[in-house]
């Protein structure tokens, strides 16, 4: 899918722990159990390290994992 939810950092300025660059919103693809999901997340423009905000990890990501795991 070309669309994707947009998740900004939960709060405060965030920098890449490896490069020190300020994170920028960018499109990434999350994969889990042979399914792919587009999402816009804060990521390092230099090394690509991506931050998964807590709200996503404990929200949609958790629901989707449970669905795909058939639990």
């Amino acid at each position: 899918m070309s669309m994707g939810p947009n998740y900004t950092p939960d709060g405060g300025p965030w920098r890449c722990g490896r490069c020190g660059c300020a994170l920028e919103q960018g499109k990434v693809q999350a994969e889990y159990l042979q399914s792919a999901f587009d999402v816009f997340l804060p990521r390092c423009p230099q090394c690509g390290l991506t931050m998964i905000p807590r709200s996503l990890a404990e929200g949609k990501m958790l629901e989707v994992e449970r669905l795909l795991e058939d639990k």
């Binding site: 899918m1 994707g4 939810p5 399914s35 999901f37 999402v39 669905l67 795909l68 058939d70």
Partner: peptide
Amino acid sequence: ESRELARLTAQLVWYGD
């Protein structure tokens, strides 16, 4: 093919507001 149903539901949950 329950996995296909789970996948469709997961896509709806992921992309839906």
